[in-house]
């Protein structure tokens, strides 16, 4: 049986399969379909300092092999998370990562300060790549200066594992990755959604209330694999790959391209038990090909 555990720096995962923020709620939503304790970890919904109602409906449009969303970081805020949600999910035998977002650098820092006393949270994923908010979000993730500014400020407020989630909506994602590595990130995850748009021609208007939204699902996978490969060559910190992973074979593409761990997102909407199948798929592949340790496959391309 293959050894599946991987280390992201100091953060130890029992296997490389995480769930992507915004697609897995707080884990509980999937408890009827998934043994959460089997996951490498799950990353909860993007959390902000203040509660956010998100964007107006409609927020979703199906596209070829994918979907656009414009949720806009709807969440009840970090205080609600700490008081009501954390106590319900802190007993799982898996890593729980909080995805942190903000409209200004100070917001990111304050959220991290509030999360710091939570013993179960060994890592945060800093979201500098949400395409669906007017302030903050992707604005920071599309320049090296902005990405570094958020990362170094958070670094001072957060001593445990610091993952930064990168936007694909840039000219050179490797440059951004290097900037956040230099600013103190422990790992990078990529890709967040690709900025997209769809038009309802019968009604002559966009499908989304915000006109544009974030594209995810199988459609984005080749772009994501390419970016993971480029970033893995550019930085020495671990890379976490995501974007359109539907099965074990997709996950292995990212791993071979340089990802130490992967996140599963939109696929959870189609098959809520897909993460279990992905773990099984990776295991089956490794056993069949005689791979003793998943780490042997990381970045072989």
């Amino acid at each position: 049986m293959v050894e599946l555990s991987v280390n992201l720096g100091e953060l130890k995962l029992k296997n490389p399969v995480l769930t992507a923020s915004g697609t897995f709620g707080y884990g509980e939503e999937y408890a009827d379909f998934v043994d959460l304790n089997r996951l490498g970890g799950f990353i909860v919904k993007g959390t902000t300092l203040e509660p956010r109602e998100g964007n107006d409906y409609p927020r979703m449009a199906e596209t070829p092999s994918g979907m656009l969303n414009a949720v806009g970081l709807q969440n009840k805020g970090v205080d609600y998370f700490i008081e009501h949600i954390y106590p319900r999910i802190c007993h799982y035998d898996t890593e729980v990562l909080v995805n942190v977002s903000g409209k200004c650098v100070e917001d990111y820092v304050k959220v991290c300060e509030k999360l710091a006393p939570l013993e179960k949270i060994n890592a945060i994923e800093v979201n500098i790549s949400c395409p669906n908010v007017k302030q903050g979000g992707m604005a920071y993730g599309t320049t090296c200066e902005g990405a570094a500014e958020v990362t170094s400020a958070v670094r001072k407020a957060w001593s445990r594992h610091l993952m930064v989630k990168l936007s694909p909506n840039v000219t050179s994602i490797a440059d951004i990755a290097r900037a956040v590595e230099d600013a103190g990130a422990d790992s990078v995850s990529l890709i967040n959604t690709l900025l997209g748009m769809a038009v309802d021609v019968e009604r002559r208007r966009p499908y989304l209330s915000t006109v544009t939204g974030g594209l995810s699902g199988a459609a984005v996978k080749p772009v994501a694999v390419r970016m993971v490969w480029q970033v893995a060559k550019a930085v020495s910190i671990p890379v976490v790959g995501l974007g359109g992973i539907m099965n074990g074979s997709d996950a292995l593409e990212f791993i071979m391209a340089g990802a130490r761990a992967i996140e599963v997102g939109t696929a959870n909407f189609i098959d809520p038990s897909v993460t279990m199948k992905i773990i099984d798929g990776i295991t089956e592949f490794c056993d069949r090909q005689g791979v003793k340790d998943i780490n042997e496959l990381v970045g072989i391309i």
Binding site: G25, E29, Y57, P58, R59, V71, N268, F269
Partner: peptide
């Protein structure tokens, strides 16, 4: 019957605004 993706309360796509202003 709002348009939805997951059906499980995770994706937050199918929201409706209630009286109290919350989605």
């Amino acid at each position: 019957e709002n348009k939805m993706a997951c059906g499980l309360g995770a994706c937050l796509c199918c929201v409706e605004k209630k009286n109290d202003g919350h989605n």
